[in-house]
């Protein structure tokens, strides 16, 4: 039996997942509001040829709403990944390079943030900033750095204490050339995977606090809003309102996970041949 080449398979996974996610993102981003206009004539239609995912109580097309919702979540997640990853990089590298008190301080911050249940922290921050789009975005963006900080710190410490880095200094290499030649190529792949694995967390968290009512306002076509509305209709047998948006959210989260895990395999020099 001919086994499929793992590296090719990894690339295909990554390719498909990226195309799907980017597709949803841009489709939602540039979607005119008319895509999910209110149309009372067609309210609560089950899935069919006209409306693939059915319509809701205001006759809005559920496919379009879901796409827009996921897209909004992805935008929040991108902001979160952007901000949190920068914090993590700055904190992690500082802690590893300077050590001592700075290291203790960074570890203390990490422990503090990780000590509070994440959802509680999100709600607190969102609430403090007056809920709404601003609150949820800030909450998601500023709470996703601690794990990644730990990873970055550990990786930088491990590469800096490695024999080949110490030998490089002995061979007269400057700090800059060691950083450029040894440290960055070692830390960057791990860091990028970490950033990508931030996305599913951020997407889920944005959806969760919106669902709980601490996030995006009800008029926004967010996935959390859609899901919380659909709760009211589930007892009436309008299953499609919940099922399709839920599946789309799940799929988006899983695809990010797939990209992250596969990139990890691709970049790890040890597992390269498996």
């Amino acid at each position: 039996m001919k086994k499929c080449n793992t590296r090719t398979r990894v690339m295909i996974y990554i390719g498909f997942a990226s195309v799907y996610l980017l597709g949803i993102f841009f489709w939602g981003l540039f979607m005119p509001e008319s895509g999910y206009d209110v149309n009372y004539a067609d309210k609560l239609l089950p899935p069919g040829s006209g409306h693939l995912f059915g319509t809701d109580f205001m006759g809005r097309d559920m496919l379009m709403r879901s796409v827009k919702g996921i897209s909004v979540s992805l935008l929040t997640a991108a902001l979160a990944a952007g901000i949190s990853s920068v914090i993590a990089l700055a904190f992690g590298v500082t802690a590893a390079v300077f050590g001592g008190r700075l290291d203790s301080f960074v570890n203390w911050c990490v422990d503090l943030f990780m000590g509070i249940p994440h959802l509680v922290l999100l709600i607190l921050i969102s609430f403090m900033l007056g809920r709404g789009a601003k609150g949820v975005t800030a909450a998601v963006a500023f709470t996703h750095w601690p794990e990644l900080t730990r990873v970055v710190r550990a990786e930088v410490i491990s590469v800096r204490s490695s024999q080949y880095v110490r030998a490089a200094y002995k061979m007269g290499k400057s700090r800059f050339s060691v950083a450029w030649g040894h440290v960055i190529p070692h830390v960057l792949p791990v860091y990028l995977v970490g950033v990508i694995l931030l996305f599913p967390h951020a997407v889920m968290h944005e959806a969760s606090i919106t669902f709980l009512g601490f996030g995006l306002p009800a008029e926004e076509p967010a996935i959390g809003v859609i899901l919380s509305e659909s709760m009211k209709y589930i007892a009436m047998g309008k299953w499609w309102l919940m099922l399709f948006p839920g599946l789309m959210l799940l799929l988006a989260v899983m695809l990010f996970d797939i990209i992250g895990e596969n990139l990890k395999r691709l970049w790890n020099p040890d597992s390269g041949n498996e």
């Binding site: 086994k3 080449n5 590296r7 090719t8 690339m11 390269g272 041949n273």
Partner: peptide, 11 residues
């Protein structure tokens, strides 16, 4: 025997 990668995606 081991299934190893040579250049790129060829094994």
């Amino acid at each position: 025997s081991f299934n190893m990668y040579q250049k790129g995606l060829r094994r």
